[in-house]
């Protein structure tokens, strides 16, 4: 009885449910994706799924196109989000927290609802759905994920760095270029990860905002799996995972700082 009690009071005991959950819903599926990707429908080892991807122009094109859309979205998010974060974090320009909340507010609403509303808005304004609408929708949906980490880093930035730069002879423009921008890079890296990765794999937004005319990589995976092509779908997922993992490694140079100071992740 006493031993049982001690078992339940140990802190490590409390982690068991989480461990079970993680194994069941994260590790196991990943292993399954990996196994399925290297098997044919009968369960024999094969590399056919990958050669199919490389040889079929359609899937490869979708893949390249998706990455292109993700890059465009991310760049637009930086261009729009960086000034916004700068203004929000500057107490002289923005005195109340209301602005911050207003920027973050869209995140409280379900992404599908927001996207459906965007479709309705485009219909109402008689704007065509398609590539433009897709990028608009993506930027609209992911912009808060770019603003928030940058805002966080900028807000915590020690004001004495700015004063030190002024003191050494930097005018306001130079202070921004040589101190504020480099010091806020960890926030930008966090923002890039939070925008770039989900935009590669998104499919609901593209389906709704292009009337299913433009296929993104996420859509391709979803279609294959829906049509019972489990092995091919798994291979495509694996390729996408590798790409995402690579971006993470690529940004790891600043990644140490990004994870320390970068706000929400």
């Amino acid at each position: 009885m006493k031993q049982l009690l001690r078992f339940f009071l140990k802190r490590s005991t409390w982690s068991i449910p989480y461990a079970i959950f993680l194994v069941g819903f994260v590790v196991l599926p990943l292993i399954l994706i990996f196994l399925y990707a290297f098997q044919d429908a009968e369960g024999n080892f094969t590399l056919a799924n990958f050669s199919k991807f490389i040889s079929s122009p359609e899937a490869a094109n979708t893949f390249v196109y998706s990455i292109g859309i993700a890059i465009v979205t991310t760049v637009l998010c930086i261009l729009l989000g960086y000034p916004a974060a700068y203004i929000l974090s500057n107490s002289e320009l923005c005195r109340s927290k209301v602005m911050v909340v207003l920027f973050i507010l869209p995140m409280w609403i379900n992404i599908l609802v927001r996207t459906l509303a965007t479709v309705a808005l485009f219909d109402f304004l008689r704007l065509p759905l398609g590539e433009g609408a897709l990028i608009f929708g993506m930027v609209y949906n992911f912009l808060p994920f770019m603003i928030y980490p940058i805002y966080n880093v900028m807000q915590k930035m020690d004001h004495s760095y700015i004063e030190a730069a002024q003191d050494l002879g930097a005018n306001p423009m130079t202070v921004f270029r040589k101190v504020v921008v480099p010091l806020s890079m960890p926030g930008v890296m966090s923002g890039v990860m939070m925008v770039f990765m989900p935009t590669i794999s998104t499919f609901a937004i593209s389906e709704l905002l292009t009337m299913n005319n433009i296929k993104l990589f996420g859509t391709t995976i979803q279609e294959n799996i829906n049509n019972g092509m489990w092995n091919y779908g798994a291979a495509l997922s694996l390729i996408m995972l590798v790409i995402i993992f690579a971006t993470e490694l690529f940004s790891d140079g600043d990644g140490d700082r990004a994870s320390n100071e970068g706000g929400i992740i």
Binding site: D158, S160, Y161, E163, A164, A165, Q166, D167, L168, G169, A170, N171, K178, V179, P182, L183, M185
Partner: peptide, 27 residues
């Protein structure tokens, strides 16, 4: 401040963390 002929040593140093020693001094 950037046009005054003075320089300051700050209480908490305020060295730029993104620059090395040389670039801090050469700033």
């Amino acid at each position: 401040p950037h046009e005054r002929p003075v320089n300051t040593v700050f209480q908490r140093y305020a060295l730029f963390p993104h620059l090395n020693v040389y670039d801090n001094i050469a700033f």
